Amino acid sequence: MKKWRALFEKSKHFLLVSFLMLITFCYAMFQGGFVSWFVFFTVSPFLLYAFIFQLVREDIYRIERKIEPSRVESGQSVNVTISVERKTRFPFAYMLVEELVGSTMLVQSKVQEKDAIKFVGFKKVFNWSYTLESLPRGEHQYLGANIIFYDFFGWAKKRIQIEKEQTVLVYPRVHDMKYATLQAKLDVGSMMAPYSIVKDTSMAIGLREYVPGDRFSWIHWKSFAKTQTLQSKEFEDRQSQELLLMLDEGASPLFEEKIELVASMFKAIVQGRGEISFVSTGTKTKVFTSIQGEKQLDRVMQHLASVKPLENAQFQLRDQQVFQRVATLLYVTSDISDELLHTLGNSVKSCICFVVTQQTQTQSDVIKRYKHIQVVYVDPTDYYHLFTEVMKP
């Protein structure tokens, strides 16, 4: 049954044209007279064209989709230009270009009549442009395009489906932040020892193997000239220790604001010559160590662009090598609880907990029990002075 239905769908336009040709001819033959033959000869060219239309084998030689700008942040708009080149010059009346999409945002734009109708004629190349406005963060995927050719009256139709996958990666919005050397305090005997995330690049204490993402100025060229092996200088951390940033990926109304805060912090730290690690504890733990260059930062931004909120997410430090070196944890969340404070207090040596909230919250009594935990409430509309706020006593 399905085979017969598919065969009918494929040949119904051909049958329709053939039926119209037969009907008009029979009408002229049996009715006779000027009017009936006038109708026959008037309609015949269009029916003959539609009949030949069905017999012509058309194909698409090339289809390209150009998206500008190539790097997009949340809330920005992009211009999409589609270029289609067909193989023959058969004069079709017009064609419809329909995008095949695989994300909710692109489906909405499709509903808003983003399809294009082009008059074909003898042309082989067609261009079509449209604008996607206020893109949300995430991965938005194009699957391909449907190109449908029509005759003058829609009696004949030819559909060609092209698979042309392309992903539009929309990065989280990055806010300007006033950078200051971020420090955390840790009890050492009777003193409080400050720790920063900035390396002292004026004093090299040794060499290590080159790691992709190391700054160009850190390469030791003398050793490279001797050994033909890239090595980077190892600098002294006068007031540094391993810092780790973690993101609460639990679903919340302020989830996007948390992502933007994390992205803004990474951008400010890297531009300020800082160094920090990042652990994403979603459905699968992903570790980014020693983020200190633009390449490493871009990999983190790509990950943040694709992060999705998780239902019933719980804080946990999994058995990863990176946690063994962590002395200070920076934890970004939008909901702080006594259970979370207990877990943080018993898991890390020092912690700064950034709570993204629109309402001022009172300090919990549990915080007083853990002197090594600092809670900072963050206004989701203003991240500029965040680092300086952390440094306040």
Rank of each mutant, 00 (worst) to 15 (best):
A93L: 00
A93P: 12
Y94I: 00
M95I: 05
M95T: 08
L96N: 13
L96V: 08
L96F: 06
L96S: 10
L96Q: 11
V97Q: 10
V97F: 08
E98A: 02
E98M: 04
L100Y: 10
V101I: 04
V101E: 04
V101D: 05
G102I: 00
S103N: 07
S103V: 02
S103I: 04
S103A: 02
M105Y: 13
M105F: 13
L106H: 08
L106P: 15
L106R: 03
V107F: 08
V107A: 10
Q108C: 02
K110N: 09
K110R: 10
K110F: 11
V111N: 09
V111M: 10
V111H: 09
Q112M: 03
E113A: 05
E113D: 13
E113Y: 02
E113V: 00
E113F: 01
K114I: 08
K114R: 10
K114D: 14
D115G: 00
D115S: 04
D115Q: 06
D115E: 14
A116Q: 11
A116K: 11
I117R: 11
I117T: 11
I117W: 12
I117G: 08
K118C: 12
K118M: 13
F119P: 08
F119T: 07
F119G: 05
V120S: 02
V120F: 03
V125Y: 04
V125M: 03
V125G: 05
F126I: 01
N127K: 13
N127A: 02
Y130Q: 05
Y130F: 15
T131V: 14
T131W: 11
L132Y: 08
L132Q: 06
L132F: 04
E133F: 03
E133D: 14
S134P: 14
S134M: 05
L135Y: 08
L135T: 07
L135M: 14
P136M: 06
P136I: 03
R137N: 07
R137C: 05
G138F: 09
E139K: 09
E139C: 02
E139M: 00
